[in-house]
Simulated assay, not measured.
Amino acid sequence: MAVHPDRRTLLAGLATSGLVAGCARPDRGRAAATPGIAVTIDDFDLSDTPLLSGSERDAAILAALRRHRVKAAGFVAGKYVDATLAPRILTRWSDEGHILGNHSFSHRYFSGQDPAGLMADILRCEPLLSRYAGFRRLFRFPYLAEGKTATGRDAMRALLDRHRYRNAPVTIDTSDWCIDNRLKARLAVDPRSAIAPYRRFYLDHVWERATFYDGLARSLFGHSIDHTILLHHRLTTGLFLDDMLAMFRARGWRLVDAETAFASSTLALKPDTLPAGQSLIWSLAKADGRFAGQLRYPGEDGDYEAPRMDARGL
């Protein structure tokens, strides 16, 4: 399986400038006392992993969603869609009522320099997904990178509108891929290694990041929102998604369908920040200007988690 590139490396050298957001106010109809959370899963690299094959991993993910009676959104990179396994899995996702969205064909980082090229790559992926009833014209930017120049950012927004695509933003970003890489590396050395410490670290990490981004949302809007969390189709999701959803429920969060979350006008906001991207809540907080001391850049990265995992021997 290809290793997820380090997000800090990909974004190195980009200067962040916080500008005033010229956006409408978010939904007032969803001024919930408790936050909601919708599951979104990126990439759909269906390679086999230690403990679970690609098919077994997907079955575990769908079983967790079914158990908690919640519908997710999967954002599929076309380069992972093969002629055998992918059609069976994408059919199953569609038949069970989950959304299938576009993650581009090549999964390249978008700097803003070639909007037309990215749009062509999105359209190249579309025929691989449009045959499924669950397909929606929702696009998730690879690496949550939406352009480092205003010209490139705005040109990409216009192209998405022209082709009737909506951006599918993340509000709760995570570094689940970093934890996954560590777990797979350990299992490659010793397949009998205990996974419980990785489960604990994973759940702690997800909870910490969720409460951070929800805290920003409460400060921005005066209330919680229905969040979209970023996960990847990886071993950690197959092993721990059920535990994660149970944790949020036990701690008072509502599980919401991805389609419900994406219908919110809050997720249609377009903050005027550069570089564009990251978590939508991160970008709105950056544009607001009051939260500079709380906003690291990039918002999530393996470099933040590696020392803490090292300290735990993970």
Rank of each mutant, 00 (worst) to 15 (best):
Y213T: 14
R218W: 01
R234T: 14
G215V: 04
G215C: 04
R218G: 11
H233Q: 14
S224N: 12
A246C: 08
S265E: 15
A246N: 09
G252Q: 12
G215S: 05
R234G: 01
D226H: 02
D214G: 09
A268I: 06
H233P: 00
G238V: 01
L239N: 00
A263Q: 15
H227P: 03
D243Y: 01
R249V: 15
T211P: 01
A246M: 07
L245M: 15
T260W: 02
R218A: 09
S265K: 12
T266F: 14
A217G: 05
I225S: 07
D226P: 03
A217V: 02
A250F: 07
A261L: 06
T236H: 04
T211C: 08
L255Y: 09
L230R: 07
R254F: 00
S224E: 00
E259H: 02
H227S: 10
A246V: 08
G252D: 10
H223F: 13
A217I: 08
W253V: 04
L235S: 05
M247V: 09
L231D: 00
M247H: 14
L241V: 07
H227V: 01
H223M: 06
R254K: 14
I225F: 02
L231Y: 04
E259D: 15
M247Q: 15
H227W: 05
S265Y: 07
L230N: 09
T266W: 08
L267S: 01
D257H: 15
M247L: 15
F262C: 05
H233T: 13
T228W: 00
L255H: 08
